[in-house]
Design a protein around this nucleic acid. Structure first.
Lengths: 125, 125
DNA sequence: CGGTATCCTAGTAGATACTG
DNA sequence: CAGTATCTACTAGGATACCG
């Protein structure tokens, strides 16, 4: 794959979307941040609810995804500049506008993918 | 949080969704099939509209994605069993139910990702 | 606490050639 | 026409150690 701009300019938002959410935890991160700002370790811990095959998330991975989401303008990073470090991540307006899309995905997934165990409904979040 | 038996049943449809659409062309394929059945080469040609950096799609890749979508129950493969070969792919009911989700994605993407170049709007399909 | 620096593995996609 | 076989390049993700 050559270019980064080709996906956006091709008139196909789907490809751009695919690239935007490429990353194992990105959708979950945005979803988890809808309730308010969270710190780095809170996000990491939150992602372990129903962990997807791994017992712990490599910090390198989480760091990269958070950075990507920040550059894509979905989340905002707030460094308090104190010791010990305190950093909060929160949704931007763009990020908040994306939450309903994730809700649609979750809604569909709950109906078609989690037939046996719809423990927490979308509305119950 | 209720109990989770498997990765899919973890109350996180998002992860299952991510896995389901993992593949460069899956969303596009489903989207393109909403107008009716298409043959293998029609799908390939259709995917080249606004090609994402490549002039041609490796048959191996398209084949794998079609197979995966079939196994996931989103599309159905109909082999006419003639020579020369004729195979049609069409959406299943599950696949059709997924179209609105893609529409939501496209809609969001058109507003937030394709600000400069919204050549073909969602409604213009 | 919130990362970064390395190293490693596995999977995804592309190119190309070939087949029923 | 609709794929399969093979080989290669790239990258996402994981493990681990360490730093500001």
């Amino acid at each position: 794959m050559a270019n980064a701009k080709s996906a956006q300019a091709c008139g196909c938002p789907v490809a751009a979307f695919q690239k935007m959410i490429s990353g194992k935890y990105k959708l979950r991160i945005v979803w988890d941040l809808q309730d308010g700002p969270k710190r780095y370790s809170e996000i990491r811990t939150g992602l372990l609810r129903g962990s997807s095959g791994s017992a712990v998330i490599a910090p390198r991975v989480l760091s990269r995804e958070l950075k990507a989401l920040t550059e894509q303008g979905l989340i905002d990073r707030k460094d308090f500049g104190v010791v010990p470090p305190k950093v909060e991540y929160r949704l931007t307006r763009k990020g908040k506008s994306f939450v309903p899309v994730i809700a649609a995905i979750r809604n569909w997934g709950a109906r078609h993918l989690a037939e046996a165990n719809a423990d927490q409904m979308v509305a119950a979040e």
